[in-house]
């Protein structure tokens, strides 16, 4: 029973990672860049939702929608101002710019909201008691898993059925050819950033409901871990990000419970290294043939 409760908390934590990892992996798939500022968009989402509920007294659902709207706009603005001018630049230059954006967001948050941790009111509280109180599951865990599944299903449908989704897949396959077919590559990339940032806002709200202290650096560690999860599952692949996120969460929860609280992150990263050595493109990553 104890194992089951650790497993459940792992899966729900993993769902948060998966939602963040989806944002990473979509952007990577299309723009071929590691968007290091993604973790900080999560933090912004958390703060917006916090302000909406605490200062404006809006209901939780409205605050989530507001956070999503703000983060979407933020994502498009960041992409337009910082990444679009560097479309033809070497990937390292874009990476450093992304790091600059990450610093910018963190320090702006520091100026606006201060360094002290804000205590976030979880959007949903209480626990579900099962088996006569032997197994208790927080409602937020259940909600997180459901949200993650819905997003996952929605994204899969979106990328396989809709016109924009098809354009995205075409761009990630071959940008030049996509452009020749009349696809607006720049617009597609902007939409990808918008979707990724909206997902980051959802992830931010869920993350803050989990560990209710909100700081300007709240997003960085989950950001790194979600990035790891995306690589773990094979970066660029949407089911891969989902699988990687869940696995990462479960490994982390079980390592914390059974091996060592202190070394949990180290164990997660060690597993990642082993997986990458056995399967160098991640669990569901495509193996790219090399042409000489």
């Amino acid at each position: 029973m104890e194992f089951l409760s650790y497993l459940i908390s792992g899966i729900s934590l993993g769902s948060v990672y998966a939602i963040i990892a989806l944002g990473y992996t979509m952007v990577y798939g299309i723009a071929k860049m590691l968007n290091f500022a993604h973790g900080d968009v999560i933090m912004v989402g958390g703060y917006i939702s916090f302000c909406a509920t605490t200062y404006l007294g809006l209901p939780a659902v409205v605050s989530i929608l507001l956070a999503m709207a703000v983060c979407t706009v933020l994502g498009i603005v960041i992409e337009g101002l910082a990444y679009k001018p560097l479309r033809a630049a070497p990937s390292l230059a874009v990476l450093i710019t992304a790091i600059g954006v990450s610093y910018l967001l963190q320090n702006s948050a520091l100026l606006i909201w201060g360094a002290a941790a804000k205590s976030y009111t979880p959007i949903i509280s209480g626990t579900l008691q099962l088996f006569g109180g032997k197994l208790s599951i927080q409602y937020i865990s259940i909600l997180t898993v459901i949200v993650c599944l819905v997003i996952m299903a929605g994204l899969t449908l979106f990328t396989s059925k809709s016109k924009m989704g098809k354009a995205m897949r075409a761009c990630s396959e071959d940008k030049g050819a996509a452009q020749l077919m009349g696809i607006n590559v720049n617009q597609t990339i902007s939409v990808t950033f918008a979707i990724g940032s909206a997902l980051a806002a959802v992830a931010g709200v869920l993350l803050c409901s989990y560990s209710p202290s909100l700081m300007p650096t709240t997003g960085s560690m989950p950001g790194i871990k979600a990035f790891t999860a995306a690589v773990f599952g094979g970066i660029g692949s949407i089911p891969g990000a989902f699988l990687g996120g869940i696995l990462l969460g479960v490994i982390e929860a079980l390592a914390k419970a059974y091996i060592s609280m202190q070394l949990a992150n180290a164990i997660v990263f060690a597993v990642l290294i082993v997986v990458l050595l056995v399967k160098p493109t991640g669990l569901l990553g495509k193996k790219v043939m090399e042409k000489v």
């Binding site: 910082a82 001018p85 630049a89 070497p90 230059a93 450093i96 710019t97 600059g100 954006v101 610093y103």
Partner: peptide, 10 residues
Amino acid sequence: LILVMLATNN
């Protein structure tokens, strides 16, 4: 940092 990257690469 961002401006230097833009200035040297755009």
